[in-house]
């Protein structure tokens, strides 16, 4: 039998002890903080900038992406793609992306799917433009949240990657992505996506699509580098992101986007 005095004594001592040990765990290591603050090139935060007014719909970016990343060229999958939007004078909106825009847009025929096509006359178009798209490498990637096995993740420099050797191909991430940026690679039956050409950017190269784009519609930069021209544009110009209302914090920023773009 313990007395009330004894019980209060021991429980108070226990609480105090727990508080001290918790405080010890949350101590900040000043060395670590300092290391994170300097060295922008080691502590990069990659971001993509797309000027959709410059895109001409040539699709050379899609071709370069698929070849660079060794994806099956004829399979209807692509980490990046180009969409075409045509708004008629009557207010009708057509949008297509045949073969992800891999072969460019060479015809006036809009692909409606199911083997149907629609020709929109030049005199009947109010707006017509192209929009390059790719994985947004969200700061809060829903595709990563849903992965049941930890096969997809966000690297410290802000790139969302898939561990092919660990992915079970369940397809949850494809369902979760609001941008339709993921696909199943038919060769490995695992999830595939844009890697921001992680093998290139970590070597100081540009991504394959940025390098292939003749018009500067696609640009790539490091938000942690104050001298980076792309970072400067993102910080100072009127940029928007896709589906902001989802709270995913996309890291692909757009200039000259129109409200028709979905």
């Amino acid at each position: 039998m313990i007395t009330r005095r004894e019980f209060l004594k021991t429980s108070l001592a226990g609480a105090a002890g727990a508080a001290i040990s918790l405080a010890a765990i949350e101590m900040v290591d000043p060395g670590k903080v300092l290391a994170a603050a300097v060295q922008p090139e080691k502590n990069a935060r990659w971001a993509f900038l797309i000027d959709s007014t410059k895109c001409v719909g040539c699709g050379l970016c899609v071709k370069a992406c698929k070849l660079e990343n060794g994806l099956p060229f004829e399979a209807n999958i692509s980490p990046t793609w180009v969409e075409r939007y045509i708004l008629t004078n009557g207010g009708e909106l057509f949008a297509d992306s045949p073969k992800a825009g891999r072969d460019g847009y060479t015809s006036k025929r809009v692909d409606l799917g199911m083997g149907k096509y629609q020709v929109v006359d030049k005199s009947d178009t109010k707006k017509a433009f192209f929009v390059p798209k790719l994985c947004n490498h969200c700061e809060n990637p829903p595709c990563v949240q849903v992965c049941p096995v930890g096969a997809t993740y966000r690297t410290p420099d802000g790139v969302v990657l898939v561990d092919k050797s660990w992915c079970i191909g369940c397809g949850y991430c494809i369902m979760a992505c609001p941008y339709g940026a993921r696909f199943i690679d038919p060769r490995t039956r695992t999830a595939g996506k844009c890697t921001f050409c992680y093998h290139r950017i970590t070597k100081g190269l540009k991504t394959a699509c940025v390098q292939a784009c003749p018009f500067g519609a696609r640009q790539f930069g490091n938000l942690n580098d104050p001298n980076d021209p792309v970072a400067k544009t993102i910080m100072t110009q009127r940029v928007v992101v896709l589906k902001d209302e989802y709270g995913t914090k996309p890291q692909a920023y757009y200039l000259g986007l129109s409200k028709e773009v979905r």
Binding site: L67, N140, R154, T155, D163, Y198, A212
Partner: peptide
């Protein structure tokens, strides 16, 4: 790792696998 359990639960060695892809262009 970095992103906590929600975003950073993974095999760190797969980062190296992503880096080891051959540069073609």
């Amino acid at each position: 790792y970095d992103g906590g359990y929600i975003y950073g639960w993974y095999d760190q060695s797969s980062e190296e696998a992503a880096k080891s892809v051959e540069v073609k262009y």
